[in-house]
Design a protein around this nucleic acid. Structure first.
Lengths: 151, 151
DNA sequence: AGTAGATAGTTGCACATGCAAATACAAAGC
DNA sequence: GCTTTGTATTTGCATGTGCAACTATCTACT
């Protein structure tokens, strides 16, 4: 087996590792959020993204990018959250095709309540992942990435 | 904002980065595999896992772990591939609850045909990801992890 | 031997997702 | 002004997924 073949295998192994870590974290968050507030991970992602806009709106398309979802899935995701009274659609005046979404007071309240649970679960699952030799370097790189970005 | 809050935010940002990278890679592989052989990423994962056993069997449960799927989803995934003639179920003699799966000649052939396409797509998307400053350190860590594992 | 409890896999059902088509609106060209 | 082209969002439809319940088999205990 040559050097080129090695590189291919390294990439494949790296991708499997990434997928495993992603699945581990997502499953842990899913459990925590579902138990605490019947929220899925994407639903929490929406609340999180909207709350980070702090009083500002987000278009459906931005939401689709933030959640890595298709437009149709985004529509239905927003429908679900709107039906639960967690956010509202706001028609945009200057581009009447566009639709903004904004957290309601209830949505913000639920987010504030769930966030510590989410953060604790994330902390726990990352600690767990760091104990697995295969996953540890990737976990470490997540922090390094943030430092790079912030620094 | 205190040090603890910073750590929380670093972890959250790291998780978003990981999810973004995962989504990027999965979408790229999905496109490549679907175009080449109407295979989804999980379906390819099954062929890959089975081929790496090289002539040996895999239980449903092992397959479920390899694909990070539920038992029921694994059943239907195997059904799909069996219907396409890519693998066969083999009843296990010593534990008649257990079911082994094995690639057919056709399945192995398809895998051999698709693998280079998969590898090329993975190589390309990783190169693309490495150009994004936020993703680059994580991509680098994937290789580092493999190096660590391989010793 | 016989029963109780655990384990492997499958099925019914509800639901979230993506793709393609439809609708509504905006922007550009003539 | 009108048409053509492009963009934002929504809906119809098919499909993949998880959970819970079910069947079949194994294991342990008596």
């Amino acid at each position: 087996m040559g050097i080129a073949d090695d590189a291919v295998e390294v990439r494949a192994q790296g991708w499997r590792t990434l997928a495993a870590l992603h699945g581990l974290i997502e499953a842990a968050l899913e459990r925590a959020l579902s138990a605490e507030a019947k929220l899925s991970v994407v639903e929490y992602t929406v609340l999180d993204a909207l709350s980070r806009q702090d009083g500002w709106h987000m278009r459906m398309q931005q939401l689709a990018r933030a959640t890595a979802l298709s437009p149709s899935a985004t529509t239905r995701l927003v429908n679900r959250l709107e039906d639960r009274g967690l956010l509202t659609r706001i028609l945009c005046a200057d581009d009447r095709r566009g639709i903004y979404t904004e957290l309601t007071a209830q949505g913000r309240g639920l987010y504030e309540k769930v966030r510590p649970v989410h953060d604790a679960a994330l902390r726990a699952v990352l600690a767990e992942a760091e104990e697995q030799p295969e996953l540890a370097p990737v976990v470490a790189a997540l922090g390094a990435g943030a430092r790079t970005t912030a620094g």
